[in-house]
């Protein structure tokens, strides 16, 4: 059965995040509660969300002796150019553009101290200082070279698969708020998805961040769930892989109704949907 490979240090899997850094990412979410200057930009929300996700991925692999390399991770930003947002130490570069999670754990750009309120165990709350790792900061400039980003992702995935033929295949998650400005991304997406390990083809999921007040379309199964006359939404739907079994289970745990044809795709997603989506997409199978 495809998409069932056990994930171990001998047989890790890979997550590659493609993050839109175009100028429009400076704007707030369409349905944001806060308006005007107070509302955080999409770029800020996305950077915070993905930094938090990377932190959680490290924690999933953390054991008493250190961090086990169950995952290899890459983050590519695309805006004024396509650039890696996390990099391994030169001496540890695997040549695939993907960083073993233990290297990521040791190399945050900085630790940020935040104050959060926690349960004091006595019915009240108290302030607690927590340190959170930050690997990259928000950035928003110029156009949306999504095709270039998919092309670079394809090179990374191909190189990684050459070294990990038995692994659960790489999961690529593309988060964007606009149309590609450098061509037809569907063609690039199909090429990316065609690279496969023995366990299945590369998975590509897409999240479109909301620019309007329109409701989100989360994990659609049929094209007719999408807004009419939105070729752009149709293209992202077409680019997206269906969810494999373990991720369908994760989606059901998040309260979604899914079936075999459900796509890893969200249109007009708000920050809450984005977090849920990334959680589902990073549940390939049990760690062993």
């Amino acid at each position: 059965m495809a998409y069932s490979a056990e994930i171990s240090r001998q047989q890790p899997t890979a997550f590659l995040f493609l993050l839109d850094q175009s100028a429009s990412m400076q704007d707030a979410f369409g349905g944001a509660e806060q308006k005007g200057d107070a509302a955080p930009s999409k770029a800020r929300v996305l950077a915070d969300t993905v930094n938090k996700l990377l932190q959680n991925l490290v924690l999933r692999c953390a054991k008493e002796e250190g961090v086990r390399d169950y995952f290899h991770v890459g983050v590519l930003g695309y805006g004024d150019r396509v650039q890696p947002l996390v990099t391994p130490a030169e001496s540890l570069d695997s040549g695939t553009g993907l960083v073993p999670i233990s290297h990521l754990a040791e190399r945050p750009k900085r630790m940020e101290e935040r104050v959060q309120r926690v349960d004091d165990g006595d019915g009240g709350t108290r302030e607690q200082r927590v340190k959170s790792p930050v690997w990259f900061d928000p950035h928003a400039k110029n156009g949306t070279p999504m095709c270039q980003a998919l092309d670079l992702a394809t090179q990374h995935v191909r190189d990684w698969i050459d070294r990990h033929t038995g692994s659960f295949p790489p999961v690529v998650m593309n988060v964007t708020d606009g149309e590609a400005t450098d061509g037809d991304p569907l063609r690039y997406a199909q090429k990316l998805r065609s690279y496969a390990t023995d366990d299945g083809e590369t998975l590509l999921f897409n999240v479109h961040l909301s620019e309007s007040e329109a409701p989100a379309v989360e994990l659609p199964t049929h094209r007719d769930e999408l807004p009419r006359n939105a070729k752009y939404a149709d293209d992202l739907f077409e680019m997206s892989s269906t969810l494999p079994f373990t991720m369908r289970s994760a989606a059901e745990n998040e309260g979604y109704t899914v079936d075999l044809d459900t796509r890893g795709f969200m249109f007009n997603a708000d920050p809450v949907a984005l977090v849920k989506f990334l959680e589902i997409g990073t549940r390939p199978s049990n760690l062993r």
Binding site: L59, A62, K63, E64, V67, A105, P108, M111, K131
Partner: peptide, 11 residues
């Protein structure tokens, strides 16, 4: 331990 040691144990 580094940052993740205490945070993981806290869970």
């Amino acid at each position: 331990m580094p940052w993740y040691g205490a945070e993981k144990a806290a869970d």
